[in-house]
Amino acid sequence: MSTTAAPGVPARLLRAAPWVALVVVLVVLPQVLQPYWVNRVTGWIPLAIAALGLNLLTGYNGQISVGHGALYGLGAYATALVVNEWDWPFLAAIAVGAVVCFGAGVVIGLPALRIKGLYLALVTLAVATLFPQLVEQFSDTTGGTTGLAVTSLQEYRGRMRERSVKFEPPEWTGLAADQWRYYLFLALAAVCFVIVANIVSSRVGRSLVAIRDNEVAAEVSGVNVAATKVFTFGISAALAGVGGGLLALYNARVSSGSFTLAVSLYFLVAVVLGGPATTLGPALGAVLYGLFKDVVEAEVLPEAWKPASPLLLGALLVVTVLVAPGGIVGTTRQVRARFTARRLRGTTPP
């Protein structure tokens, strides 16, 4: 018995259609858009991955973090330093950042076992404010507010020089540099999203949600709550680190100004607006934030009105919590379910 919109169209195909459309759009995008815009969209991907990580921790597991910007920054600096000091290939450098951040996540996750809810949010808020100061303190290594250029040895005018990192597309692809970079970033993001989707739909994923909804009940039914919570913090941090590493390579620069408290807040914005505890939510949230920043704020609004963009985001955040707590994805699902129910009722024989 299947619900069909049109006779003869199997339901499975219908459900897959939006996903296929999404993949098509993502793949075709850089062929259609100007390089300037391809670059802008590429810049949204690190945020999407970090938001994915935060969503795993806060949306699925209920541990509130207002400090993921610090982990983002940690990943960025780790990747930058690895590339600068050891000249490792990009993916390896990002992996190092991810591992470092996993460790940091575990370190934060352990005391988080005893500090919950609003109080955990407070601690992570303090971490987020501390991070730029940490960068300042160790400015010999980090470059402080001026920052570090992320460079690698490249051939330039016949000689090997240290130049800002680039993503050179191989000949056989026939792609331009901006397109190649976009596809690389997209591929890494896709891998991360698939990994998280698998975690979420596995038994581990169910125990994450069980802990969020009722920790005591989860413990009683055999879940190792402590290990799960700490592990989730670690994974979540590692994902933020991957995002940060990508950001460092994208900008070819890291500085403390990129990792202030606001960044942590915007991650939350992406998670909540996109849809907490959904797979696609963080990506949508990142796109929404990106649109606000790169389109509304940068292109549409006149100079004096630029703060209207974060104002709108803040207001949207409040409205979402009060009116549509499922975010874009959650609310869409609700609306669709109600629509389907209404249609079913309409077709029920008297």
């Binding site: 509130i64 914005v269 009105w305 974060p310």
Partner: peptide, 21 residues
């Protein structure tokens, strides 16, 4: 608690931006 955190974060961003506006 999450709803409260989000709301106050939203207010944070909104008041900050409103002051600048």
């Amino acid at each position: 608690p999450l709803a409260v955190v989000i709301v106050t974060v939203g207010l944070f961003l909104a008041f900050n931006a409103l002051a600048q506006l």
